[in-house]
């Protein structure tokens, strides 16, 4: 077994007396689709914030391949291939979709420091940005300001911006949050068609989608990992049933 692409060792995080992450150990091999599930407040988004550097763990280590990245800032992790999307749209409202993706490509290539060459001189950057938008069905609206895009299109743009950074590991925080179920198929088609070189960890509440997309599932409860396994193992696990069925009346 080769080194996992992303792994953590003994991550702890407390907000005062509230434990939001306790002894988190994960190891994601290359190309695997992981679902991260658990009831509200289980610490799923916190874990993504810890992995991406938006939060610092109190204890523990994070590795990208063989390199320890625990002390690196979020930008440095992105440049090493560890990239996230946001549960709540976190976009550039007044940039067009094309400008936004072009910006992400420029930052990846180190071109964003250049102030003496016009953007139109970067033909291959524009082509790359446009092809990412095309693959996510956003090409027809690429010259519209982001704020004018439909909500579902903005969710797709979240993924487009992440792809423009050429991720090795992609962390999707509820990619379809707020999208009506009958309109979310485009989103999940996009996630399904991601390159097999990319390792994906996604948070999702809809169990049908989780079982359709994920090759492995991590269940979190109260800041801890309860169990990790294949969809079949998770479906059969009595503890998971307890959390989901037993906890259902809490809402």
């Amino acid at each position: 077994m080769s080194t996992p692409v992303l792994s953590t060792r003994g991550l702890d995080k407390n907000f005062g007396s509230l434990v939001v992450a306790k002894d988190i150990e994960i190891a994601l091999p290359k190309g695997v689709r992981y679902a991260l599930i658990g009831p509200n407040g289980a610490g799923k988004t916190t874990l993504i914030n810890l992995i991406t550097g938006m939060l610092q763990p109190d204890v523990g280590q994070i590795f990208l391949g063989d390199e320890e990245i625990t002390r690196l800032g979020p930008e440095q992790r992105v440049r090493r291939g560890l990239v996230r999307t946001f549960q709540i749209n976190t976009l550039f409202p007044n940039l067009t979709a094309l400008e936004a993706v072009t910006l992400a490509v420029c930052e990846r290539r180190g071109d964003a420091k250049t102030w003496w060459r016009p953007i139109t001189a970067y033909g291959e950057v524009l082509d790359e940005a446009y092809s990412i938008l095309t693959s996510l069905l956003l090409a027809p609206v690429c010259n519209r300001p982001t704020r004018e895009l439909a909500y579902g299109q903005q969710r797709l743009l979240e993924i487009a911006l992440a792809l423009a950074t050429r991720p090795k590991v992609l962390l999707l925080d509820e990619p379809a949050a707020g999208v009506p179920r009958d309109e979310s198929s485009e989103l999940f088609a996009a996630i399904t068609s991601l390159s097999q070189d990319i390792t994906v960890l996604f948070i999702e509440h809809d169990m049908n989608i989780v079982f359709k997309l994920a090759s492995r599932i991590i269940v979190m409860v109260g800041g801890r990992i309860l169990v990790e396994g294949t969809p079949a193992e998770i479906a059969a696990d009595p503890r998971v049933r307890e959390v989901y069925l037993g906890g259902a009346h809490h809402g």
Binding site: T52, M54, G73, P74, E75, Q76, R77, V78, R79, V83, R84, T85, F86, T90, L91, F92, P93, N94, L95, L103, A104, E107, R108, A112, L161, A162, A164, T165
Partner: peptide, 11 residues
């Protein structure tokens, strides 16, 4: 427009 998003694209 969005400093948080800039961090998330590695800017």
């Amino acid at each position: 427009e969005n400093l948080t998003r800039m961090r998330a694209i590695g800017a």
